[in-house]
Simulated assay, not measured.
Amino acid sequence: MSTPACKSDPFDAFGIAATMEGWRCMLKVARELRDVDAEMMDTLLDAHASGGMAQDRDAADKVRSLATLMCGLHLEPEALRRSRPEIVRELEAACLGCAERARCTRELRGGTAADTYPEFCPNAARLDGLREA
């Protein structure tokens, strides 16, 4: 004879343990999100330290372009940011210093960046390494 699925725990009559476990999980997720936001803020603040608001927008565009390229290469930017934030910072730093912004934008809009990035992207070797890992 099986026990009913809704049988309560005799030692936790009010469900406090289950509630606490739920809160613990939510706090863990909140901390992870805060860490991701803090890393992105550090990147943008570094870019801001070297110039004005136009540079901030340009930096944000470049970081978005990097994420778009990574998705096109079947890499998950947010998962990588959580597991290896130092690699993402290196990728973003190289992207922020890139002189091929116009070509990158053109290739991303045309849907050809995943094929042509090795020709112009300063992150080509790093991205290839991530793809092989």
Rank of each mutant, 00 (worst) to 15 (best):
F14H: 10
A54H: 09
V36H: 03
H48T: 05
A67Q: 05
L75H: 01
G72S: 06
H48E: 08
T112Q: 15
T3K: 14
A113V: 04
L130N: 01
N123G: 04
E78V: 10
D128C: 11
C121D: 06
F120H: 12
A94M: 08
P85R: 04
R57K: 06
A54C: 08
S2R: 12
E107C: 10
A59T: 00
T112E: 15
L69G: 00
D42V: 06
L108N: 02
M40Q: 08
A30H: 11
R109W: 08
E92W: 02
M20E: 12
L44T: 02
E78Q: 08
E76W: 04
E21Q: 14
C25K: 12
S8Q: 11
C98A: 08
E90F: 06
D37P: 01
S50E: 09
E78C: 05
G110A: 11
F11K: 13
A125Y: 06
E39Y: 07
P122I: 04
T105H: 14
A99C: 09
R57L: 09
L27Q: 13
E92A: 10
D61R: 07
C6G: 11
T68N: 05
M40F: 09
L80E: 01
V29N: 11
H74C: 07
A113R: 00
V88Q: 01
E100L: 11
A30G: 11
S50G: 05
I16E: 13
G52M: 02
I87M: 07
E78L: 09
V36Q: 04
P10R: 15
R84V: 02
A125C: 08
A133E: 15
F14T: 09
R24G: 14
P85K: 03
T116G: 09
G51T: 04
R103Y: 06
E132H: 10
V29E: 13
A18I: 08
G72A: 05
R64Y: 07
R101P: 04
C121G: 07
R126G: 04
P118H: 10
E119T: 15
C25Q: 12
A13S: 13
A5L: 15
G22D: 14
M53T: 07
G72P: 02
R34M: 06
L80F: 01
L96T: 02
W23L: 15
E107F: 05
D37G: 09
F11E: 11
A60M: 04
M41C: 12
L73G: 01
E90P: 02
R34C: 05
D35C: 04
L91H: 00
Q55I: 10
G129V: 04
D115K: 15
P4N: 11
P4K: 08
G111H: 09
K28M: 11
V88P: 00
C98D: 03
R64G: 06
S2N: 14
E119Q: 15
R31K: 12
D115A: 15
C71W: 07
P85S: 04
A94K: 10
R82M: 11
C98K: 03
V29H: 12
D58E: 10
L75F: 01
T19V: 13
T116N: 13
G51I: 03
L44E: 01
L108V: 11
A49C: 03
